[in-house]
Design a protein around this nucleic acid. Structure first.
Length: 353
DNA sequence: AAGCGTCTCAACCGCGAGCGC
DNA sequence: TGCGCTCGCGGTTGAGACGCT
């Protein structure tokens, strides 16, 4: 955009909390025409002013929005300022190269997945810096737990899944993590969203003649679950009964193993009907006491390596060829990857988003 | 095609538990 | 005992999609 465009940036690309519109993030779903129109109204741009702003909107709107604008407004679209527009601003409107608050881009996902696959989970708060991400550790953890873990099962909920959620919600209430433990591969956030979107009304119509015992097992098991207010999923798992629908995921697992499984471990367990999923959760965990965090100033190297479109296995798993990460410098991490199965991990969608 | 309202769900936020010092 | 840090959980938000008029 030629000339002084700072004012236009503030008006168009940042909301009233001084946050970047999510649609600015590259690689996200493109905005359709109606959404662009909504945005246009939302920021209070009058019809007479739109010619001043239309190119800016095209930048933030993605492919669909650009096509729409090109077609309807007959303008030329340039994305040359996209990177600058993406950067959050301070309260006085200055560019702030700090943490992004937008949705995760495929590139960011790749960074996080590659780093965890290479070095495991050792400290969420330090991981963003080490991996070259401009995210909070909390955001990284959330993204990994709810979206990037290889054992995550995505897609529609089956009838059996719905029944399981309904039954366990009646028993446990809004303890989504506990409910998620009953549905291998599903996250608590996903179940929570599905509940509010689809099952909340449905649950009110469930026949009151159905007892808790009929839903989830014996009275002892019900009490064990009801009394579990610690957030510890072990108790719930131990008390699982074959009467519980959709619990194939833990059948066949020795009891001694189940007792020591965390929620994440449970989720990673494979179902008899689903393709086998490796339980890699523990492989991602690193004893934090072993970490001697490298303080090398490799920010330039980090920037450089992420300019590459993709990584090869050699880039990722051969330390001498992996200058992009600030690695925890432990012998176990550096010399013997915690992912002994990594080379034949066909189920890990590292290359494709 | 445009306008509008509703729905979905990824991301964010605040809080509390657990742990080490 | 108190403090700080990390992690996990549940509630909330809001961008984008969708459907209706």
């Amino acid at each position: 955009m030629e000339g002084d465009h700072r004012g236009l940036d503030n008006a168009l690309f940042f909301d009233n909390k001084n946050r970047v519109f999510r649609s600015l993030k590259p690689g996200l779903r493109a905005l359709d025409g109606s959404t662009v129109r909504l945005r246009w109204r939302a920021v209070g741009v009058m019809d007479s002013e739109r010619p001043r702003y239309r190119r800016g909107f095209a930048w933030c709107g993605g492919v669909a929005a650009r096509k729409w604008l090109c077609r309807s407004l007959q303008v030329e679209i340039s994305g040359q300022y996209l990177e600058m527009m993406m950067m959050p601003k301070t309260s006085d409107g200055e560019k702030m190269p700090g943490r992004s608050r937008a949705s995760w881009s495929p590139e960011e996902d790749q960074k996080l997945k590659a780093y965890i696959k290479r070095y495991g989970i050792w400290n969420w708060n330090r991981m963003p810096e080490a991996s070259g991400l401009t995210r909070s550790g909390k955001s990284c953890r959330l993204r990994w737990m709810n979206y990037l873990r290889p054992e995550i099962k995505r897609g529609n909920f089956s009838q059996e899944d719905q029944e399981t959620i309904l039954k366990w919600h009646e028993l446990l209430g809004n303890r989504w993590s506990a409910i998620a433990a009953k549905l291998p591969g599903r996250t608590d956030n996903e179940i929570k969203n599905y509940w509010h979107a689809h099952l909340k009304k449905l649950s009110k119509n469930i026949s009151s003649s159905t007892t808790l015992s009929e839903l989830v097992g014996t009275s002892e098991e019900v009490e064990a679950n009801k009394n579990d207010s610690s957030g510890n999923q072990d108790l719930l798992l131990i008390s699982d009964s074959p009467k519980v629908p959709n619990m194939d995921g833990i059948k066949g697992i020795p009891t001694s193993l189940q007792i020591h499984m965390s929620t994440n471990d449970i989720v990673s367990s494979s179902s008899s009907t689903d393709p086998p999923v490796e339980d890699v959760s523990n492989q991602y965990m690193i004893d934090q006491d072993e970490i001697n965090f490298s303080s090398s100033n490799s920010s330039e190297i980090i920037r450089g390596i992420w300019e590459l479109p993709y990584f090869s296995f050699q880039d990722i798993f051969m330390p001498e060829r992996d200058p992009g990460f600030m690695a925890p410098t432990t012998a176990s991490c550096q010399q013997e990857p915690m992912y002994s199965d990594v080379c034949n991990d066909a189920g890990y969608d590292f290359w494709v988003d």
